[in-house]
Design a protein around this nucleic acid. Structure first.
Lengths: 110, 110
DNA sequence: CAGTTGTATCGACAACTGTCAATATGTAAG
DNA sequence: CTTACATATTGACAGTTGTCGATACAACTG
C-alpha cells in the first residue's frame, strides 16, 4: 500500500495561491503530522544518537503495540518522511529532513 | 465548542525531544492543516486583497455548502489560525501569521 | 533442518471527520 | 414589526483512522 509521496509540490501556501490538487497533496502530507504518536516517533528518531533508531525500541517507549508502531512507521516511510534500513533482522529508521523542509516551507518563509 | 488553542507549546520537534502532551497539542494543530479545504481557505485569505476575505465569497470559490465552509472557518478561528471580524452582516477573516509560524518552527529551523 | 526473534500484514472494531439539508440566530433595511 | 440576507448550529450519514490480536513473513541461530 503505497501512500502519496511528498514531493516539492507547492510554493509557500500563505504567499502564493494554492490549487485544488496542490491542496490535496499538502493536506495528505500534513495528515501524517496530525497524530501524536507519529510526531513522537519523528522526534524520537531525530533526536536519537546518530539520528537513527531501531524499530524494536519504539513499542516500549511510546507505549503502543508492535503492529501499531509498524503501521505508523510504514506511513511515514511511504511518504518519504522516514528512510528505512534493514540491518540483520532489525529495521533502522532516519528522518528525511528535506521532506520535512518541504512542509515547513509550505507554511511560508517567516 | 472551543477547540484547543495553538499556543507556542513546543520548541523545534526535530531538534528537541517532544513529550506526550506537547505531541497531542501539536498534532491537533497540524490536523487543521490536514484538510485540503482548510488549506485552500487559508491560502485564499492570505493572498486576498488586504489579506482579508468575506465568508460570503468562500462557498462559491471552494465549491462547498455554506454550513461546511462555516464549520471549517470556525475550526480555524477557534485554533487561532484565523481572526474573525464582523462588519454589518458580513464576517471577514484574516490569517494569524504568528500562529502559522508556531507550526512552521515546530518542524525545525531549516 | 527446526527454533527464535524482529517486523509486516490481515481482520475487525470503536472513534473520529467532512459533508449537507434543515433549522436557528443574527444583522440590517423597509 | 416584518422581511431579507449572511452566518452559525443541529442532526444524520458515509467514509476514514488508530488500535490491537492473530497471523504471516523475514532473518539470524544452533
Amino acid at each position: 500500500m503505497k501512500s502519496r509521496i511528498i514531493e516539492k509540490c507547492c510554493g509557500p501556501v500563505l504567499v502564493e495561491p494554492i490549487g485544488s490538487t496542490e491542496a490535496e497533496e499538502l493536506a495528505a502530507a500534513f495528515k501524517l503530522l496530525s497524530d501524536p504518536i507519529r510526531l513522537r516517533i519523528l522526534s524520537l528518531i531525530a533526536n536519537a544518537p546518530n539520528g537513527e533508531m531501531c524499530a524494536c525500541d519504539l513499542p516500549e517507549v511510546i507505549v503502543r503495540s508492535q503492529p501499531t508502531v509498524s503501521h505508523h512507521l510504514s506511513l511515514l516511510a511511504d511518504a518519504g518522511l522516514l528512510t528505512r534500513e534493514q540491518r540483520g533482522k532489525w529495521a533502522w529508521f532516519r528522518v528525511e529532513q528535506e521532506r520535512v523542509g518541504v512542509l515547513r516551507d509550505a507554511l511560508g518563509t517567516g
